[in-house]
């Protein structure tokens, strides 16, 4: 029997190919993009397009230079997703130079050095955003809003605006918190939009919810405790406001929901989420809000492989020991 052309099983394949996963992420971010452009106008649109385009360009250049892949047959959609994520985590009045720095760092240092799409240990978008937050803390304070916010002004893309004090969120009503009608980052403020994205991803099955859910639960439960220590008053209101206004929800869904860099197993995923939540709350009083959100995620990214490995080994050992007991 001739078998040279025989393909090995399986003969069917899930529809969830890698481009599909990235496309679902892109689609899930669409509401946030709409939010950003609606509230911040042209400069948000330019920032988003610029980040995506430059990320793709730099990724392709790196691949070309290192000769890792000839390219052509496979368009790396992960670059688009990561560029978009970086853009959405920027304040609306960020200059293009800062955005470019974030993209450069994310693409070259955290992605291509590790071997390109999928091989990265840490989340490039997260790392890039954290990098500029540490290098240019003053460059990421442009939250012009309300009366000072012009949807057609482009000057902030080129010239660094006056740093503004980070607005306080305590007085915001629930409707504002949910709809994101308050100054904040381009894409992270609108709770409803992020929720729509999260539901979309869940329906499509391209998100692992262990980490995001445990992270959010940890923060909402422990936030009153930290408030108790700081201000001697116990209330869950603060945790709600913090969750909705700080961008924690965005980070949970789109950074911790990432398949590549977060632990894949249930136990390790939950553990990572809890650790992230605790680290965020612990570091919150001492560093800028974005750092306290992103740095723990990076830390967990480094650990995710180890966490996975251990959770697996532990579970196997448990079964093994039970067998011994039975016999």
């Amino acid at each position: 029997m001739i078998r040279d052309s025989r393909q090995l099983a399986p003969f069917i394949h899930t529809e969830k190919s890698a481009p599909y996963i990235y496309l679902t992420f892109l689609a899930a971010l669409v509401p946030c993009v709409v939010y950003g452009i609606f509230y911040y106008g042209i400069r948000a649109a330019i920032l988003i397009l610029f980040c995506m385009a430059s990320f793709v360009l730099i990724d392709n250049l790196c691949v070309r230079v290192t000769g890792r892949r000839s390219g052509g047959d496979y368009f790396d959609l992960s670059s688009l997703v990561e560029g978009l994520l970086i853009a959405l985590m920027l304040p609306p009045d960020t200059t293009l130079v800062i955005a470019l720095t974030a993209v450069l760092f994310a693409s070259i240092v955290t992605k291509q050095i590790f071997g390109g799409a999928g091989s990265n240990i840490i989340n490039p978008a997260c790392a890039g955003r954290l990098f500029i937050e540490l290098v240019w803390p003053s460059g990421l304070q442009g939250f012009s809003y309300g009366e000072t916010n012009s949807k057609f002004s482009l000057i902030s893309l080129v010239v660094q605006q006056q740093p503004e004090v980070s607005p306080s969120y305590e007085h915001l009503s629930l409707a504002e918190l949910l709809s994101g009608n308050y100054p904040g980052l381009i894409g992270t403020t609108c709770f409803i939009c992020i929720l729509v994205g999260a539901i979309f991803l869940t329906l499509k099955g391209t998100i692992r919810l262990y980490s995001p859910i445990s992270y959010l639960v940890t923060i909402s439960v422990l936030y009153p405790v930290t408030m108790l220590i700081e201000t001697r008053s116990f209330s869950f209101d603060g945790s709600l406001i913090y969750l909705l206004s700080s961008g924690a929800f965005f980070v949970a869904v789109f950074i911790m929901g990432d398949l590549t860099t977060m632990p894949s197993r249930f136990a390790s995923g939950v553990f990572a989420g809890v650790v992230c939540g605790i680290l965020t709350l612990v570091t919150k009083p001492f560093v800028s809000p974005m750092v306290s959100l992103l740095a723990p995620v990076l830390a967990v990214n480094f650990l995710s492989f180890v966490l996975d490995f251990f959770s697996k080994t532990l579970s196997r050992r448990k079964i093994h020991s039970r067998e011994v007991d039975v016999s």
Binding site: K16, P19, L259, R265
Partner: peptide, 26 residues
């Protein structure tokens, strides 16, 4: 079955395989 082309991309380390493995492997 139809001759469907399976997408071939580098591993993205998503961990879906270890999640679905009935024998609990990675």
């Amino acid at each position: 079955v139809r001759r469907a082309e399976v997408p071939r991309t580098p591993c993205i380390h998503c961990g879906l395989c270890s999640e679905c493995c009935p024998m609990n492997l990675s």
